[in-house]
Design a protein around this nucleic acid. Structure first.
Lengths: 149, 149
DNA sequence: GCTTGACCTTCCCACGGTGGGAAGGTGCAT
DNA sequence: ATGCACCTTCCCACCGTGGGAAGGTCAAGC
């Protein structure tokens, strides 16, 4: 859905288009990332003014906001591509969306568990370390492989 | 502590040196990463045989294992550089190590909280989605900005 | 000895996501 | 007309890891 290069920017604005920084402001996605998403094909190529400035409509901003929100929920680019596809497919099955989201929850859980494992080990080590001016340190001993974590 | 390029590989082995893949095996750090760590200066440049093969001693392998273990606990390269410095400084204060570790725990906590926030939101959305063949889907609605998460 | 295969070397490229900044063109208000 | 804020493309960086190509080396078997 690329729009043709018809407009002067002023005309475009009158027609309700935004330029990239307005779209960024409105969507919460930086201009850098908007261009990036376009480049990797996550969003369709934006329309352009005669001078080559990208222009965006409300619908485009919605898409960007959708992406932003998905990122905030930790979805990867690939997952977001999937979500966008489902979103734009009026005949989608909500079960497919739910499946994707559920899978993502599992990924989050895995990551959380991993971090908690680290946290637990580290907490234990910190607890064992007197933490004063003496060099003796069970944290370093463990890292060095003393292996009685 | 780079060693001079004196040895044939066979001599080096007799002297108790390892080649890079043996060091990788023994330390749990891939050959790729060993070279990388050397390149970024995290570990000193390895000794070489006359043919240019890197050779490693037990002490070097210990350093690599230290790094590996630190990575497993989620420390960043920068933090590991700090830990290595402390480890190799016999006059360190264990308090400095403890401080570094404590700070890292706080980072882990922040990251965990972030992921849990995502998880919570997503869990709620998934809970609201009937997940059948119908297209109607509160997950997509939320991502699209329906904004009643 | 010579071949073979497993190793080594350096080099470049990729990922995910994001940002910085240079160099050059445009839009608009004064 | 001048200046400033914005736009464009392009390249580079981060972190950590891996893939792979092109070329050299080592050790074992014949």
């Amino acid at each position: 859905m690329p729009q043709a290069r018809y407009f002067e920017l002023s005309d475009a604005r009158r027609e309700g288009f935004f330029n990239i920084s307005e779209a960024a402001e409105a969507s919460g996605v930086s201009t850098k990332m908007i261009r990036h998403y376009e480049e990797i094909g996550l969003v369709p190529k934006a329309g352009r003014t005669v001078a080559g400035y990208r222009i965006y409509r409300d619908a485009d901003v919605h898409v960007l906001r959708f992406i932003r929100r998905s990122r905030d929920l930790g979805f990867t680019m690939k997952e977001i591509a999937g979500l966008l596809g489902l979103w734009q497919n009026k005949r989608r099955a909500s079960g497919d969306v739910k499946k994707l989201a559920t899978k993502h929850i599992a990924e989050l859980d895995a990551r959380i568990a991993e971090l908690q494992g680290m946290r637990r080990s580290l907490e234990h080590l910190v607890h064992c370390c007197h933490g004063d001016d003496r060099p003796d340190c069970p944290i370093l001993d463990d890292l060095a492989g003393a292996a009685k974590a």
